[in-house]
Measured scan of single mutants.
Amino acid sequence: SSRTRFTDYQLRVLQDFFDTNAYPKDDEIEQLSTVLNLPTRVIVVWFQNARQKARK
């Protein structure tokens, strides 16, 4: 499976959201998916990875 290449804009939006809320609800994931034009699955994985990094 090929890795998703995020744009600077997508990363900024995801990071800004994460800084406020590391555990987005389903409807928030749907909204991010629509706004960023990314599959919900990709967003879910991004947040999982971001939470892992934040824990270190």
Rank of each mutant, 00 (worst) to 15 (best):
8 D>V: 05
21 N>V: 05
16 D>C: 04
3 R>Y: 15
9 Y>K: 15
42 V>D: 14
46 W>V: 01
38 L>Y: 03
47 F>G: 04
42 V>S: 10
23 Y>D: 15
28 E>A: 11
44 V>P: 04
2 S>A: 03
3 R>T: 15
28 E>C: 07
33 S>D: 00
34 T>V: 08
21 N>Y: 02
33 S>F: 00
37 N>L: 08
49 N>E: 13
9 Y>S: 14
8 D>M: 08
26 D>W: 11
29 I>D: 00
30 E>H: 12
32 L>V: 06
8 D>K: 02
55 R>I: 15
14 L>Q: 00
11 L>W: 04
8 D>Y: 02
5 R>H: 15
12 R>G: 08
38 L>M: 10
29 I>R: 01
12 R>M: 02
51 R>I: 06
9 Y>H: 12
25 K>V: 10
19 D>V: 12
42 V>I: 13
48 Q>M: 05
14 L>N: 00
9 Y>R: 14
3 R>K: 15
31 Q>C: 06
21 N>A: 07
16 D>K: 09
44 V>N: 12
14 L>M: 13
24 P>Q: 01
46 W>G: 02
16 D>P: 04
27 D>A: 03
50 A>T: 09
34 T>L: 12
38 L>A: 11
13 V>K: 13
3 R>S: 15
26 D>G: 12
47 F>L: 11
2 S>N: 14
18 F>S: 06
5 R>A: 15
54 A>S: 12
17 F>D: 02
25 K>S: 11
30 E>C: 07
41 R>V: 12
45 V>K: 05
14 L>R: 00
16 D>L: 02
41 R>P: 08
3 R>G: 15
16 D>F: 01
7 T>I: 04
11 L>V: 11
25 K>I: 10
14 L>V: 06
9 Y>I: 04
45 V>T: 14
52 Q>G: 05
10 Q>F: 00
39 P>D: 14
45 V>L: 12
53 K>R: 08
46 W>S: 03
33 S>Q: 08
50 A>L: 05
2 S>H: 09
39 P>R: 09
43 I>M: 03
7 T>L: 03
15 Q>T: 10
28 E>T: 10
36 L>A: 09
27 D>E: 03
20 T>A: 14
31 Q>H: 05
4 T>M: 15
9 Y>M: 13
31 Q>A: 07
49 N>I: 08
29 I>T: 05
24 P>R: 02
15 Q>E: 08
49 N>T: 14
14 L>E: 00
39 P>G: 12
24 P>M: 02
24 P>Y: 01
53 K>Q: 08
32 L>N: 01
35 V>K: 15
9 Y>G: 14
19 D>M: 10
2 S>E: 15
44 V>T: 09
46 W>Y: 04
52 Q>A: 03
24 P>D: 01
4 T>H: 14
10 Q>E: 05
50 A>P: 00
19 D>E: 06
29 I>S: 01
44 V>A: 10
34 T>C: 09
28 E>N: 05
5 R>G: 09
6 F>S: 02
1 S>Y: 06
12 R>V: 02
24 P>C: 02
6 F>M: 14
17 F>M: 12
51 R>H: 03
38 L>K: 04
13 V>S: 10
4 T>V: 02
32 L>H: 00
5 R>K: 15
30 E>F: 08
31 Q>M: 06
24 P>K: 01
11 L>H: 06
29 I>E: 02
42 V>A: 09
39 P>H: 14
11 L>N: 13
22 A>D: 12
36 L>K: 01
42 V>R: 06
15 Q>I: 08
49 N>Q: 04
30 E>I: 06
22 A>N: 10
31 Q>P: 04
56 K>N: 05
42 V>C: 05
20 T>Y: 03
51 R>K: 13
56 K>F: 12
35 V>Q: 12
20 T>I: 04
9 Y>F: 15
45 V>Y: 08
34 T>M: 08
37 N>R: 09
55 R>L: 15
7 T>S: 12
45 V>E: 11
51 R>M: 06
28 E>Q: 13
15 Q>Y: 05
35 V>C: 13
51 R>C: 08
4 T>E: 04
5 R>F: 15
1 S>P: 02
52 Q>R: 03
36 L>M: 08
47 F>I: 13
7 T>F: 01
2 S>G: 12
24 P>E: 01
30 E>D: 14
13 V>H: 15
3 R>P: 14
4 T>P: 09
19 D>C: 06
21 N>G: 03
54 A>F: 10
37 N>G: 08
41 R>A: 14
34 T>P: 04
31 Q>L: 05
22 A>E: 11
8 D>P: 14
45 V>I: 07
7 T>C: 02
21 N>D: 08
6 F>P: 01
7 T>G: 04
54 A>Q: 12
46 W>A: 02
16 D>E: 12
18 F>D: 00
15 Q>G: 09
42 V>T: 13
19 D>F: 08
3 R>C: 15
17 F>C: 06
6 F>N: 03
35 V>R: 13
15 Q>D: 10
21 N>P: 01
43 I>P: 00
40 T>N: 02
36 L>H: 01
47 F>C: 03
31 Q>I: 04
35 V>D: 06
38 L>F: 05
23 Y>L: 12
49 N>Y: 06
1 S>L: 09
19 D>I: 06
24 P>G: 01
21 N>L: 02
10 Q>V: 02
33 S>H: 12
8 D>E: 08
27 D>T: 05
13 V>T: 12
12 R>N: 11
43 I>H: 00
3 R>L: 15
35 V>P: 05
18 F>Q: 04
44 V>D: 10
45 V>Q: 06
15 Q>P: 01
54 A>I: 09
47 F>Y: 06
29 I>M: 11
14 L>S: 01
40 T>I: 15
10 Q>N: 05
55 R>C: 09
20 T>V: 07
39 P>T: 11
45 V>P: 06
19 D>K: 10
53 K>F: 13
44 V>R: 09
37 N>C: 04
11 L>Q: 01
